[in-house]
Structure formats: structure tokens, C-alpha cells
Design a protein around this nucleic acid. Structure first.
Length: 831
RNA sequence: GCGCGGUUAGCUCAGUUGGUAGAGCGCUCGAUUUACACUCGAGUGGUCGCAGGUUCGAGUCCUGCACCGCGCACCA
């Protein structure tokens, strides 16, 4: 008998939910339950994919559908090949991004996070996120994700946080995480710093102002920062300005007398503007670098709200653009504005999530992770082939990035995230400096020499904390008595006790170099010498100790038991998600970690190669000593039929769930696989999805035809097979071997296309047609031969198609005679 | 500026190691008591961006150029 269901047309929307429920109920998504059935390898060899946790702040988009399709394809394929296949799902709290989404929601309701307490805001965002997480999980099921829900993780789960804390503590103790005062990308709108990756540059038109600076004219787009100038710079080879180098210029500025040193630096392009640059180290990254090279102080003039501060005289309190207009107007009245180039185009740094949020470079105390040592190991892992990239060319982009990378700012001033496990004794911004000499339990006077810019800005009379050279231990506090500038060449060898006592200048220079390998040190390197009075108990404001711990420490271990204040900042979400592979597997002791790590494949979009993949490689290698995954498969972006980026505002968004309802999940999945080359963007149109719905229907009808041909019975034993039919079987076997090779080599699109063409153009259009006369004919031997052949091919075809079109294949399988088990755990039909 | 891709049929794209140019959609003509009209058959349509080179043979390998896209770094 032919199953009645098969006689009706195929209706994916009606079948799919039931099929998914059967899979989930079977427990086979959990690799621990996989049967050691005949022919399987006993499900012992692991195959692991950690799912990139979708942001739990909205609906799944077609990009999510793509990764679900690709990863589910790989997992189902390996599961059928007998592997202990684990696909571990998760959800991401997505720190800054979710905060933006939630703030937008608040804005619509006429509310603002700045009018809420931090805890209120956190609680509301958490509730919002957990609600979205539920939807998200439902949608993943709708897409057919055969992931192990029993192992699902959320980025704010307590054990994840514990792992993240452990990594941070280790980085801190190894000197790779440090609290530094360096320029960061500051968002005045959202009141947080952002990592370099969270920024983008956009082209903008701003007037270029030519202003008088004493004897010079200087071109700038930011005249309002002039109050933070600490020098002017020229190119050392610029003949026009040779006489000024090293001199100090003096002139009457807008808010009083200005004295600026003239320095020579290669950074200055003599061909641009007038060849003279104002140096504003506190509000420009390049200027900061120049300042570092020449030992110039950094003077902050813009506060965290983007307003000019008290150093700016009558301009204090004005916002940047307002101040710019005022300064320009005043310069003009006083004849200090030479000209204005209105048609000047340059690039400005903005928030990558909001182009209207122009970022302000500011020097702030933040947490940084030293990239160089981690990057070198990551590079080695890829160069040696321990991590492979698919497609291979993506690794060149990866290498290029590793070369140009700067230290990673991992602290965010946002509420929605994992709190940083650092505690300050006293003011978190209390200033610290290196310590000279031995620790002695009594008051004494001494000298310390340092050239690190982070130690700048001290004045006589300041109370500072003294730390050891590893910047981890605080000895006590001191009061600065005098500050003197000198150079390494002029330094008294005994003054440099901070770095030990040296016999020769070469030894001293070598020690400086060792202390900071990133920097060129020679006899001209500027050094500050601080005379101080050290007092181990002097502690007006706590001792300044920073405690990094995985559990909340009680009291400061350094000074006499002062209370500690936790760092109010949170981690960059990528710092925690960078640890996702080993954190989700519960490093280091859980059996999951031991079984499934290193994982097999990391499948994700090339757009987060740097944000995520690179960080996982670096942090995974650092924490576990092993690569987090062996293969990286990078897919491209899904664009619309005209290759335009999909966006709500353009109205060209294809909603994956709507497509599932309309054409079936299999159709959507097939459309996302076929014609999608690894690492390249793809164009997706509704037409393409519709075409794949036709394919699913074709399969349904193939099954109906074959089952009709065998009268609904499985042929009981193999008859003598006619040579022509044997050819059909051999040809199909060869196709399956070919497809298997494609899948193993991540040529997923080719595998799908070959199966499609075999099923449709070969099996249906030729073999089934050719079989018709035999089936109707009078030769029982030939009939038995073709019946057996058709049935076997259909079985294997369904198995091979299952990873690509899991729903329709499983549904047909369930309608086949004598099939009790699930197709998803059948043995793959080729070696 | 540095780096990475792309350029193949009207459109969107495949083409794994060099061996007679492919798919889907579209278009034209035809078929029909059919497993399937969500169908079948036939056809239309390409000097594979340009110029050289290697080779018996190049869409595929090498060199140069052009255009498009992306990433990084950016001139105040």
C-alpha cells in the first residue's frame, strides 16, 4: 500500500514542526545519546561546532538562517558518518549593541538610561534580553537546527563569567592585561569608550582653518582644541623651518599668552597645509604618538560630555561644534584667521553603530590587553596549519590585520555587561608610578626616573601610589617633592634604581628597552626624575592598589585593610565571547572540555573575522594552550537579488521565518547553500527560494513514483540486476563518493548542486522515465531488477539529501515501508 | 597609500588539481486523460574585463593594466 500522506501534495509548513518535534524528542541532538548502531563508528570520535551565539536582542535575520543552514548541514553530515556530533547553541547578551537597542526602546517611551539607576537599567535590559532569547530559540528550531539544547549557554551564565574572570586574572598576572592611560575612542553620546574595531571612518566635509600661531600659520579642522596644544611640529627636513626647531614660540592667544615648543617629527607632511602642525596630545592619536616621542605633556581640554573644560577660559562649557564656531569668529575679529578652505574633505572617526556619533579621542584610564604576544601565537597557529581557513585567502587578510594591530581596549563604561573583576583601593583613577628602590617600612626620601607617558601630568605636591615594576603591587604612597626632565643619556646611573643599578649606560638603555619592547630607546629618550617622600602608611584616599581577583576580595591586601571599590566598568562583549569555545565546554575540568575541545569547525561570517575569530584564536591559545578550533569556515553576507545590502530602510529585507512559512525551511536552506561560494557574498531572491520549493516537491513526487513502482513494499531480496540497472547504481555510487569529498573539503555549494542535478535531471528525468516501460512490461525479471534499483537509489538519495533538506527527506523516510528509525541517524551512504 | 577579492549567458552566479563553456531565473517553440503544471522536451543566449606570457592545450597558471567591491591605515 502507498501511504496516503504521500498521495497528497507536499505541504512543508504543515510537516516541518512535527518533524522537528520528533527529532528533538529522540534525544539525538545530544551526542551522548547517539546510538552505536550497526555500521556507525560507535559515535566515539567527536565532531564539534560551537554555534556563534546570536544576539538576544531581536529576530533572526537571513544571515542567521545562513549560518544555521551551513552548520546544521555539517553537523548532520558528520552525525550520519558516525561521529559524536555536538553542535552547542548559545545566546549573546551582546553588551553595547543590546544596550543601544534597549536605549532606543527607552527613547521611544520617552525615557532615558541616564535617569535610571544602573541596577534598574541592568534589570530591565536583562528581562528584555531573556524575552528575546526565547523567541530566538524558537526561530532556531524553525530553521531546523539540530543543536544540543541541553547544553545551551548564555554569555552571562555564572560559569561563563567565572571563566572570563580567570582569563582576565591570568592576563593581569602575566602583565598582558594592564590599566593604562592611553587615547581611547570616546563616545560622548553613549558615554563609553570603544575598541578600534568598533569604529569606522566616514568621509565628511569640514572647513580647514588656517590660523596664526605666532610666526607660523597652521591648518586645522579642529581650532577648538588649540587650548590643549603642547607644541607645534614641523618635518625635520623642511628647510623653511630649520631655524625654529627646538625653540619656543610665544604669542598672544585667545585666552592669554601661549608658549609652545617647536619639535621636529617625521610624522609631519611638509606638503600638507603650511607644513606646521599643532600638537594636541590629549585629543588626537597621532599627536599623542608625537608627544610620546618628544616627551610632551598631554593637556585635556574636552570633557567626557564633549564640552570644553575649565582650561579653555570663556569657551569653557561649550560643546565642540559650538566652541569651534566661537573660536573661529574670535580669531577672525582679531585677524588671526588667515583663510578658510571650505571645500575640505577628510575622514572622521565615528561609532560603527551610529554614524552621527562622532567619537572624541580622549586619554583615559582604561583596561587594555597587550596584543603583540597573543597575536604572534595566533599567527603561528595559522601559519603552521594547526588552524585552516576556508577559503584559504581569508587568512591573508587575517595576517595583514595582525601586523597593524594595537593594544585592545577591553573596558566599557556601560551597564549592560560583565563587570570587570578589578577592585581599587581608593579612587580608581588615583595615579600610580613606578617605584625606585627597596621596600622599607619607614618614611624616606628617594628618586624615581621614568619615561612612560602614563606617568605624566604629576605636579609637585601630588600624592601618588607606588607600584613595583610589574605594575601589580602597591608599596604605599608618596608625595612628589620635585620634578626634573632629563634624558637617558644624561641620567645618573644611580638615579635609575627603578631598573636596578647599572654599571654602564648601555646596560641602562638595554634595561629600558626590555621594559617596553615597543619603543625605540636611545640616549636622547626623555626621562623624568621625580624626587619624592615615601610613606608606607600615607593614604588619604586608599593606597591605590588594584586587586584583580575571581572572587570579590574583602579588604585591600596592600595597605592596612582599606575598603575596596569595584571597577564600575564592564568588559567589551568580545572579550568574553572571545573565550566562548572553551568557556562553553567548561574549561578546564569538565568532561565536555576534554572530549570536544579543540572544536572541529568555527563557521561564521567574514565580517566578524577580527571581532571574534581572531580573539577566539588568541584567547583560546592563551588560556588552554590549544587552538580553539581546527577549521575556520567563513561565509559571506547575504545580499538582495541586485547585490544590495539588506536593510530595513531600503525595504529589501528577506525575513527567513516568512520564507519558511511560505516555501518551507528546506527551500530556504537549499537556496542559501546553492550558488553560495565560501567567503563570498551571495545574492538571494525570493525566486531562488521558490525554485527550491519546487525541488522539495520534486523529491516528494519521486518518492511517490518509486513507492508506487514497488507497490508500497520494500523489495524483499536483491534480484539479479540487469547490466543497465547496475550502471545506474554504479553511477550513483560514484556521485555519492564525489559529493562526500566535496563535503569533507567544505565545497558545500558544489555538493548541493550535484545532488540537485542527480535527483532531478538524472534520476527523475532519465532513469524514472526509462523505467516506465519495464515497470509496465511483461518481463518479471527485468521488473524486479528495476524495482530494486529504484528503491535503493531512493533510499540513498534521501540519506544524502538529509543534511541539505532535512525536513522533506525525513518526512518521506517516515513514509517508506519498514522504516521505523529516524533518517537523521542513518548511516551516510558513501565512504 | 598598503592589503584582499571580483570581472564568465539578459539578471544572479557555479566552474575543486589546466583537457569540447555550466546552473537557476528569464525568453522562444512544443507536449498533456502524466509520479510531479511546483511538469516534461527542444531551443535562444557567452571572442570567460583588456594586453602579453607558459603549455600540445588556459575561464583555470604567470606578468602587467583597467574598472568594481571590501578591509586596514590615514594629511593636522
Amino acid at each position: 500500500m502507498i501511504p496516503e500522506a504521500l498521495l497528497k501534495p507536499y505541504d512543508p509548513a504543515q510537516n516541518e514542526e512535527g518533524v522537528y518535534a520528533r527529532w528533538e524528542k529522540s534525544g539525538f541532538f545530544n551526542p551522548d545519546n547517539l546510538p552505536a548502531q550497526a555500521g556507525l563508528k560507535g559515535a566515539e570520535e567527536p565532531f564539534t561546532i560551537i554555534m556563534p551565539p546570536p544576539n538576544a536582542n531581536g529576530s533572526l535575520h537571513v544571515g542567521h538562517a545562513l549560518f544555521v543552514t551551513l552548520q546544521d548541514l555539517l553537523i548532520r553530515f558528520k552525525r550520519m558518518r558516525g561521529f559524536k556530533a555536538l553542535w552547542l547553541p548559545g545566546a549573546d547578551h551582546a553588551g553595547f549593541e543590546t544596550q543601544l537597542v534597549y536605549e532606543k526602546k527607552l527613547e521611544k517611551e520617552g525615557r532615558s538610561r541616564f535617569k535610571m539607576t544602573r541596577d534598574e537599567f541592568y534589570a530591565e535590559t536583562l528581562a528584555f534580553t531573556m524575552e528575546n532569547k526565547k523567541h530566538m530559540e524558537k526561530e532556531l528550531r524553525r530553521l531546523g537546527a539540530s543543536c544540543d539544547w541541553s547544553r545551551e549557554q548564555f554569555t552571562l551564565d555564572p560559569h561563563i563569567i567565572k571563566t572570563v574572570y580567570g582569563t582576565f586574572k591570568q592576563l593581569y598576572e602575566d602583565g598582558l592585561a594592564y590599566r593604562g592611560v592611553r587615547p581611547v575612542n570616546w563616545s560622548t553620546k553613549y558615554q563609553t569608550s570603544l575598541s578600534d574595531l568598533e569604529t569606522k571612518t566616514i568621509e565628511r566635509n569640514d572647513p580647514l582653518y588656517y590660523m596664526k600661531y605666532g610666526p607660523f600659520t597652521i591648518a586645522t579642522v579642529r581650532p577648538e582644541t588649540k587650548f590643549g596644544d603642547t607644541a607645534v611640529a614641523v618635518n625635520p627636513n623642511d628647510s623653511r623651518y630649520q631655524n625654529y626647531i627646538g625653540k619656543t614660540i610665544e604669542y598672544e592667544g585667545l585666552i592669554g599668552k601661549v608658549k609652545l615648543q617647536v619639535v621636529a617629527d617625521e610624522y609631519v607632511d611638509p606638503a600638507f597645509g603650511t607644513g606646521v602642525v599643532k600638537i594636541t596630545p590629549a585629543h588626537d592619536k597621532n599627536d599623542f604618538e608625537v608627544a610620546k616621542r618628544h616627551g610632551l605633556p598631554a593637556v585635556e581640554v574636552i570633557d567626557k560630555f564633549g564640552k570644553l573644560n575649565e582650561r579653555c577660559g570663556k569657551y569653557a562649557g561649550m560643546k565642540v561644534m559650538e566652541a569651534r564656531a566661537a573660536v573661529v569668529a574670535d580669531l577672525r575679529t582679531r585677524g588671526m584667521l588667515e583663510k578658510v578652505d571650505e571645500a575640505y574633505t577628510h575622514n572622521v572617526l565615528v561609532n560603527y553603530k551610529n554614524e552621527n556619533d562622532v567619537l572624541e579621542p580622549r586619554i583615559m584610564p582604561q583596561w587594555f590587553v597587550k596584543m603583540r604576544p597573543l597575536a604572534d601565537k595566533a599567527r603561528e597557529a595559522v601559519e603552521s596549519g594547526r588552524i585552516r581557513f576556508f577559503p584559504d585567502f581569508q587568512k591573508k587578510i587575517f595576517f595583514h590585520w595582525l601586523e597593524t594591530m594595537e593594544d585592545w581596549n577591553i573596558s566599557r563604561q556601560i551597564a549592560w555587561g560583565i563587570a570587570i573583576p578589578a577592585w581599587f583601593c581608593g579612587n580608581p583613577n588615583s595615579r600610580r608610578m613606578g617605584f625606585a628602590g627597596e621596600v622599607v617600612p619607614q618614611v624616606f626620601k628617594g628618586k624615581v626616573a621614568t619615561w612612560r607617558l602614563r606617568d605624566h601630568g604629576f605636579s609637585v605636591g601630588d600624592v601618588v601610589a607606588f607600584e613595583d615594576s610589574s605594575a601589580r603591587k602597591i608599596f604605599g604612597s608618596g608625595k612628589i617633592l620635585a620634578i626634573k626632565k632629563t634624558t637617558v643619556g644624561e641620567m645618573n646611573l644611580q638615579d635609575a634604581k627603578h631598573y636596578k643599578t647599572y654599571n654602564t649606560r648601555e646596560e641602562l638603555i638595554a634595561a629600558f628597552k626590555k621594559h617596553n619592547p615597543d619603543r625605540v630607546v636611545n640616549a636622547d629618550t626623555p626621562v623624568w626624575s621625580y624626587e619624592y617622600e615615601f610613606n608606607p602608611t600615607l593614604s588619604k584616599d586608599g593606597c591605590g592598589m588594584i586587586v584583580v581577583a575571581t572572587d570579590t576580595p574583602a579588604l585591600c591586601p596592600s595597605c592596612s585593610g582599606s575598603a575596596l571599590t569595584q571597577d564600575p566598568d564592564t568588559f567589551d562583549t568580545w572579550f568574553s565571547s572571545g573565550q566562548w569555545p572553551f568557556a562553553t565546554l567548561k574549561y578546564p575540568d569538565n568532561s565536555d572540555f576534554k572530549t570536544f575541545y579543540p572544536t572541529s569547525v568555527m563557521e561564521t561570517g567574514y565580517d566578524i573575522l577580527f571581532f571574534w575569530v581572531m580573539r577566539m584564536i588568541m584567547l583560546g591559545l592563551y588560556r588552554t594552550g590549544e587552538v580553539p578550533f581546527r577549521d575556520v569556515y567563513l561565509h559571506g553576507l547575504v545580499r538582495d537579488a541586485q547585490r544590495q545590502k539588506m536593510s530595513k530602510s531600503k525595504g529589501n529585507v528577506i525575513s527567513p521565518l516568512a520564507m519558511c512559512e511560505k516555501y518551507g525551511t528546506d527551500a530556504l536552506r537549499l537556496a542559501l547553500i546553492m550558488g553560495n561560494t565560501p567567503g563570498m557574498d551571495m545574492a538571494l531572491s525570493e525566486d531562488k527560494i521558490r525554485a527550491q520549493k519546487h525541488f522539495a516537491n520534486k523529491l516528494w513526487n519521486i518518492a511517490r513514483f518509486v513507492l508506487t513502482a514497488v507497490d508500497g513494499e520494500k523489495p524483499s531480496k536483491k534480484p539479479a540486476i540487469l547490466p543497465q540497472h547496475q550502471e545506474y547504481l554504479d553511477e550513483f555510487s560514484a556521485t555519492l563518493v564525489d559529493i562526500t569529498k566535496d563535503l569533507e573539503a567544505y565545497r558545500l555549494h558544489l555538493a548541493a548542486e550535484k545532488l540537485y542535478h542527480y535527483a532531478w535531471s538524472r534520476f527523475a528525468d532519465v532513469i524514472l522515465e526509462e523505467s516506465k516501460p519495464t515497470l509496465k512490461g511483461e518481463d518479471p525479471a527485468a521488473k524486479a531488477s528495476i524495482q530494486w534499483t529504484l528503491y535503493i537509489i531512493l533510499e540513498d538519495l534521501l540519506k544524502a539529501l538529509h543534511p541539505f533538506a532535512p525536513f522533506v527527506s525525513e518526512e518521506i523516510w517516515s513514509l517508506m515501508p519498514e522504516h521505523r528509525g529516524l533518517l537523521m541517524v542513518e548511516k551516510w551512504p558513501a565512504q
